[in-house]
Design a protein around this nucleic acid. Sequence first.
DNA 1: ACGCTTTTGAGAATCGTTCTCGTTACCCGA
DNA 2: TCGGGTAACGAGAACGATTCTCAAAAGCGT
Lengths: 148, 148
Amino acid sequence: MSTQTQSEWAEHALAALADAGYRRGGARTAVVEALAEHDCAVTALDLDEELRRRKPAVGRASVYRALEQLEQLGLVQRIEVCRGTAGFERIDPTGHHHHHAICRDCGKMVPFEDQSLEKALAQVAGTMPFDVTEHDVVLRGRCEHCAR
Amino acid sequence: MSTQTQSEWAEHALAALADAGYRRGGARTAVVEALAEHDCAVTALDLDEELRRRKPAVGRASVYRALEQLEQLGLVQRIEVCRGTAGFERIDPTGHHHHHAICRDCGKMVPFEDQSLEKALAQVAGTMPFDVTEHDVVLRGRCEHCAR
DNA sequence: ACGCTTTTGAGAATCGTTCTCGTTACCCGA
DNA sequence: TCGGGTAACGAGAACGATTCTCAAAAGCGT
Ligand SMILES: [Mn+2]
Ligand SMILES: [Mn+2]
Ligand SMILES: [Zn+2]
Ligand SMILES: [Zn+2]
């Protein structure tokens, strides 16, 4: 079930933050919980809006700070959703993930998975003079609606 | 020879602009010529700096404008080089292209090509409810130097 | 050369993101 | 349980890349 996985990720993330020596703070926890509810990329400002209207309102700075810390710990991945804005998506500890096709006209984002693509990426990564830890793949074009 | 290909691209781009109904303007031509000289991604501000100190100085706005028009016509591809800045790279009319591995610590960018990766991408693109016209692939990690 | 339209560039405006800094909340040790 | 030392927080300022504005300066068909 999806809800199960989500709360598992939140637990996982909070535990990882604790292990990394972070104190337990309300704002950061709120960001983790909000991220857990999204199955695909959200922007920092979307999260900000969601969290601003909370009992103790979460500040913009805290949202960005938490996202950066989560990214640093490999709990969240940043992807370019559109012109100059970053999207954030939780990283499943099992390594299971998806990529996106994005419509250049309306911005619609469709996730996809492909095992042979992953295989090809892994192989290429092995030949690079780099310690490759992640990869971004984005297919760009027009969605069925915008393609007319 | 590389220089040959570069001027060919400039010709190609200028012709395409003309076909699209654009008048021949000095600033835009300068941007095309500057792009032709780069084999890998450059930022708009890098181009701006290169072109600002010209006989008739090219303005920042013109650089961005030209890049947008070139992108629209499929003559240039935009890629995310680092946190919030776009890189621009000319698109070879033959479809020949490369992708990049980027160091998260120093920003070093290494280009690579891989035929089986392209094959996997083409296959995935075919299964999407999208008219996919291009794709971005970025490998992220640490370069040999930063990996210690 | 004329007149209409596109192109151009300096500077202002935007917008996402990051920084600053005084206040608040944790956490650990006494 | 009670500080005291630090980490976390949030409001707002600062930033940097990109976009917008608008008046002046070219193109181009006639
Ligand atoms: Mn993948
Ligand atoms: Mn490719
Ligand atoms: Zn669309
Ligand atoms: Zn490096």
